[in-house]
Design a protein around this nucleic acid. Structure first.
Length: 409
RNA sequence: GUGAGUGUAGCUCAGCUGGUUAGAGCGCUGGACUGUGGCUCCAGUGGUCGCCGGUUCGAAUCCGGUCACUCACCCCA
């Protein structure tokens, strides 16, 4: 009986990972330029961490979490996102001066799999704790923008909005509810009226949208502090030449967001799905038992990002050692590959004693750039043939010069 | 959680309205070419037709269920 991967998961093979590793390299270099350091937290957390942070009535917590009891009856969850974990770790450590964190890792949501959506998926992101200045919001958005530019993605769009502080949110919720109360909306939105009015703002239904167009906007109902914060963020973004567009209907699905929120789209990809998203969460640290600590961060969906990278990344040059003959020749081949490896030259050797043609065929399939050939003739003459697989040229090299000649390539 | 489409060889797929030995291309292995890959030709390898049940003399084909994949919705990175 064959065993297959579980629904909504997938395997990444070496050829797939070339792109992933490249993306990770660029992300890390940008993160470091902005003073961020890596943090790694457990994949497993107490279920309550997420119901308290993300919000008890969000879809993520209500129906998308992988939650189960362990042998002691503790309720554990495979993390659906990383922000809550980072905050938890930060608070648990207590005495750290470090406030800028970045992470990479798998997240889990019990969704129905489809394009750009998996049950185990990867995110990278940053969290910056303890800073309230609008310049910080600007910097985080700038960082995200620079990351995407360095990946060679030119046509991305960053949408921006402000939800205000918890008081603004509460006030605006009522205003929006009163405005929509008597309106006849789609089935989903009728449900949202009671549960989560804000979500009606990004409903795709045409009738709902026509009402939403006329609806009062959040940014017209921000308190003076939140309004000036938002205006300053925009001022700095304009000043630094970071392009963005305002989307008064942008709301985030997680309850902890306050003030600045943003999402990144690739309009030319033909999908209206966010590749990255983030925002402020000024109350979360306190809600998780810490002191009042404003904070901001974002997360990037790596599958969604990588699906839109059409760059070709080639493997590093590698060597294949082909030998022909008896044990003494094999021993010489083993000796030489050991020497090459000591000099950091990646090489594999085939032990199957097949024909030279067969070995070249294999080397070709493995994508080896060069083949080293050792037969009885070379053995006697103390040489090795170096064959360039690309143009079929080859030359005889003295054994003692082998490492030196290869390093010249 | 809701809806639609698809499951046949390692991969991409054909198989007409049910008819008896289930096919092709690619791949893989070997040979033509005892030490030189990519091209060509030849041969070989490879399938519980996703799984379970039903209808039928007979099911890859029709029906039901189930699982998986793809896509859309809800929601989200």
């Amino acid at each position: 009986m064959k065993i297959n991967r579980v629904r909504g998961t997938y395997d990444l093979f070496p050829e797939d990972l070339i792109k992933w590793q490249w993306v990770e390299k660029i992300a890390k270099s940008v993160y470091q330029e902005y003073g961020f350091s890596e943090i790694r937290t457990p994949i497993l957390e107490p279920a309550e961490l997420f119901s308290r942070s993300i919000g008890k009535w969000t879809d993520i917590v209500e129906k998308q979490m992988y939650t189960f009891e362990d042998k002691k009856g503790r309720l554990l969850t495979l993390r659906p996102e990383a922000t809550a974990s980072v905050v938890r770790a930060y608070l648990e450590k207590g005495n750290t001066s470090e406030t800028r964190f970045y992470y990479f890792g798998p997240m889990f949501r019990y969704d129905r799999p489809q394009r750009g959506r998996f049950r185990q998926f990867y995110q990278t992101g940053v969290e910056l704790l303890g800073a309230v200045h609008p310049g910080i919001d600007t910097e985080i958005i700038l960082l995200l923008s620079e990351f995407f530019q360095k990946l060679g993605l030119k046509d991305f769009e960053i949408q921006l909005n402000s939800l205000g502080c918890s008081l603004c949110k509460e006030k605006y919720n009522k205003i929006l509810f009163n405005y929509l109360k008597e309106k006849c909306l789609c089935k989903d939105c009728e449900r949202r009226k009671e549960k989560n009015v804000l979500r009606i703002l990004d409903c795709k239904n045409k009738i709902c949208q026509s009402y939403v167009q006329e609806a009062p906007k959040i940014i017209d109902h921000l308190c003076p502090n939140c309004l000036s914060h938002f205006e300053e963020v925009r001022e700095y973004l304009d000043f630094l030449g970071v392009s963005y567009s305002l989307n008064p209907h942008l709301v985030r699905g997680l309850d902890y967001y306050t003030r600045t929120v943003f999402e990144l789209f690739l309009p030319n990809s033909g999908e209206d799905i966010a590749i990255a998203a983030g925002g402020r969460y000024d109350n979360l640290v306190e809600e998780l038992g810490g002191r009042k600590t404003p904070a901001i961060g974002f997360a990037v969906g790596l599958e969604r990002l990588i699906a839109n990278l059409d760059i070709l990344k080639e493997k590093e040059p590698s060597f294949y050692f082909a030998y022909l003959g008896e044990k003494e020749i094999l021993k010489r081949a083993m000796e030489l590959t050991a020497e090459l490896r000591k000099n950091k030259i990646p090489v594999i050797i085939n032990y199957e004693r097949k024909s030279l043609g067969n070995q070249l065929h294999q080397a070709d399939r493995l994508g080896s750039k060069f083949v080293l050939i050792l037969g009885s003739r070379e053995f006697k003459e103390n040489t090795v043939i170096l064959r360039d697989m690309k143009n079929s040229s080859q030359r005889v090299i003295k054994r003692e010069n082998l490492v030196e000649k290869i390093k010249e390539i």
